[in-house]
Design a protein around this nucleic acid. Structure first.
Length: 707
DNA sequence: GGCTATGCTTTTTTT
DNA sequence: AAGCATAGCC
């Protein structure tokens, strides 16, 4: 393998690296696999290597780097600009999905797409699924739309089509789901939308069926880089391979212990197959951890060693001993939030930490609410990622739908969402009529609406409402065409649609009304930020893509978030690091999640725990609740088995996925070791709201916070 | 067609 | 608890 080395003028770049890191960063040509344990300086290697490429004279435009999450992309961009300076701005860096959207928009004609096809996001997907269920007469009770969606997405990420799905399907449920899959694809096609999986699949098809396009990309992108390679699914892998082509200048970075996306079709064995897929690949292992103190690393190792299916590696700490890892029992989720935020507030007050150094990590989207409330009550700046975020707020979704209609008059999902928002006389009956005819004739609903409205086939009120809506949209379209700034267009649209009145109608309470209205106005900030970011390159289409793909570039919270506490899922915290981490909800049923235990995915949950623990640099605090409100009812909860694994011994053999609600977690074999927690539980319950220290990993006599 | 009240379901993680 | 769909009234 001819591996040219970085030229001498890049030597300075490499000086801060250890020998392994350096070897990775200066192996510039040919396939390269970097097995990078958590906190081993992976991003540093990646950014240094790109800087080295630039120093060697490779144009920035010839470099493509892909990540999986927007957060990771943004982090990488920041670090890259720091390492390589403004020269790096021309590097193509983004998520797979963002890259694919751009590719498809550019070549839409070749594969028969409209130039501005709508992207079907999760909410749209629900409506498409529902329509699909209806069209094959499957009751939502026999196949839950959510379940169907998950199933279909997994099929697609494995590159199965409905026919293949039906063939391999074992049970009735599978056959049913396969049938719905077919209907779903048809409905998507009728709406001319692409869902997230399609973005990858169509891109791949484009590359396979149009050699010119593929060759063009191979020619342009001389150097490829894939972050978190263990999370790649099949279409992503194929896309990378197609672009890498014969040149094979492909660097992949990953860690099988951090594979947490199996549920969306990622196969972490792929990283172990890299050498087979790309013969002659150089392999570098990074095993020195620069991030966490020994106590944290020790906790991480104690958890992950319980996974049987893994490649054993040893992470050496370079930071030495520090604060002990702590775990606390809390009464309930409110108490948990108060406890963590009190701890946090004291640290911030005393100047021991800056907000940006702190993160609260959680497993599911139901968890962050009390924390957000408490943080805001204490006036602590917070950056929340997840379901309650900007993109998922009803107002934002409504306004986004209007904008989609401005750009794409035939976007049926958007139309159905807001055709009667605010109420303009277009009732369910009219909508039903239109949708039915549209489906029957294979046409789009907007066209049918216009036709029926003009032909007097709708109630007069509905027809009037329709033309008012169309007038508002047309005015906005004219503005866009005239090149008006995005925020101005949005503001005019809000005005024309009297959206403020709608909010006031929906939220009679003063406080809620203010919050909602302010929330709605944030889309103006988002639009402004978008224009700042993209300059003359900004367009409504791109803006909508960002909204759909939830790219956080120019997120309205960005400015304040520069110094805010992060409140984020473990999944989206991957790749990030914080001085202090509070990992909350360490309970059976949450982490590991109940569903995953049922489906035999406990090893993946353990990797999730591992990822969470290894985010912390100097302080790690874990909490769990004794009881928690589920569907409005308090249920007893039990500490996560992963907390127990932090004790010296692995869990007893026969330890089962517990969690039949309300049953205590017990080893399966009667008489095996008893649960180590009851004493602490009792103590905490007796303690009138002050958390008791449940356990301390290596006791340094540190006082529990807040006592 | 719009509004309100009542009942019913809900919980994985990301793009 | 809260959000969502349905039913029944204006």
């Amino acid at each position: 393998m001819a591996s040219r080395r970085a030229p001498a003028n890049a030597a300075a770049l490499l000086s801060g690296l250890n020998p392994e890191q350096r070897r990775a960063a200066e192996t510039l040509d040919g396939p390269l696999l970097v097995l990078a344990g958590a906190g081993t300086g992976k991003t540093k290697v990646v950014t240094t290597r790109i800087a080295a490429l630039l120093a060697r004279g490779v144009p920035a435009s010839a470099i493509l780097a892909v990540t999986f999450t927007n957060k990771a992309a943004r982090e990488m961009r920041e670090r890259l600009l720091k390492a390589a300076g403004p020269a790096a701005e021309g590097v193509t860096l983004g998520t797979f999905h963002a890259f694919c959207v751009r590719l498809l928009r550019e070549h839409h004609r070749l594969i028969g797409l409209q130039k501005s096809f709508p992207i079907c996001d999760a909410a749209d997907q629900q409506s498409v699924i529902r329509a699909a269920l209806r069209s094959v007469s499957v009751a939502e009770t026999s196949l839950h739309p959510r379940a169907a969606q998950a199933r279909i997405s997994l099929w697609k990420s494995r590159m199965s089509d409905p026919a293949a799905a039906a063939r391999e399907g074992g049970g009735d449920q599978d056959l049913l789901a396969a049938k719905v899959f077919g209907a779903y694809e048809a409905e998507l096609a009728r709406r001319r939308m692409l869902d997230f999986d399609d973005l990858l699949l169509r891109s791949l098809r484009l590359l396979r069926e149009h050699e010119k396009v593929r060759a063009g990309l191979e020619e342009r992108f001389q150097y490829l880089l894939v972050d978190e390679y263990q999370d790649t699914n099949r279409p992503q892998y194929e896309i990378v391979r197609a672009i890498a082509g014969k040149r094979r200048n492909l660097m992949v970075v990953g860690d099988d212990d951090q594979s947490i996306y199996a549920w969306r079709g990622a196969d972490h064995k792929r990283i172990l197959d890299f050498e087979r897929d790309f013969p002659g690949a150089a392999v570098v292992r990074l095993e020195t951890n620069y991030r966490s103190n020994e106590e944290i690393l020790d906790a991480a190792n104690k958890v992950i060693r319980n996974n049987l299916k893994r490649h054993v590696k040893t992470l050496r700490s370079s930071r030495g001993s520090g604060a002990a890892v702590q775990a606390f029992a809390c009464d309930d989720e409110e108490h948990e939030a108060q406890f963590v935020v009190a701890d946090l507030a004291e640290l911030l007050r005393s100047g021991a930490a800056r907000p940006r150094d702190c993160a609260i990590l959680f497993r599911t989207q139901t968890q962050p609410r009390p924390f957000e409330t408490e943080l805001r009550a204490q006036g602590i700046a917070v950056r929340v990622s997840g379901a309650q975020s900007f993109f998922d707020r009803k107002e934002i979704r409504d306004l986004a739908a209007f904008l989609r209609l401005v750009a794409r008059p035939h976007d049926e999902s958007a139309l159905l969402r807001v055709v009667n928002v605010p109420p303009r006389g277009i009732g369910d009956v009219s909508i039903e009529k239109v949708v039915e005819r549209a489906a029957a004739q294979g046409r789009d609903a907007a066209g049918v609406f216009a036709e029926m409205s003009a032909a007097g086939e709708l109630p007069e009120a509905a027809a009037r409402g329709w033309s008012r809506l169309q007038a508002a949209l047309a005015a906005a379209r004219a503005e866009v065409k005239a090149g008006a700034p995005l925020p101005q267009t949005v503001a005019a649209l809000i005005e024309a649609l009297q959206y403020r009145a709608e909010i006031e109608r929906c939220y009679p309470e003063n406080a809620a009304r203010e919050t909602r209205w302010n929330g709605a106005l944030e889309i103006l900030d988002f639009a402004a930020a978008h224009e700042r970011h993209h300059g003359r390159d900004s367009s409504l289409d791109r803006f909508l893509d960002e909204l759909s793909l939830r790219s956080e570039e120019g997120d309205p919270g960005e400015k304040e978030a520069a110094d805010a506490v992060s409140l984020t899922t473990i999944h989206s915290a991957k790749g990030l690091e914080f001085e202090r981490v509070w990992l909350v909800g360490c309970e059976e049923g949450i982490l590991p999640h109940r569903r995953s235990a049922l489906e035999g995915g406990v090893e993946e949950e353990r990797r999730l725990m591992y990822v969470a623990v290894t985010r912390a640099k100097s302080h790690l605090t874990m909490t769990f609740c004794q009881r928690r409100a589920l569907r409005g009812v308090y249920k007893a909860r039990h500490p996560s088995r992963f907390l127990l694994e932090l004790k010296e011994k692995p869990p007893p053999a026969g330890w089962v996925a517990c969690e039949k609600e309300n049953q205590p977690m017990e080893p399966a074999e009667p008489g095996a070791s008893q649960s180590p927690m009851p004493t602490e539980r009792k103590k905490a319950r007796a303690s009138l709201g002050r958390p008791r220290k449940a356990r301390t990993e290596s006791s340094t006599g540190r006082e529990p916070p807040g006592s």
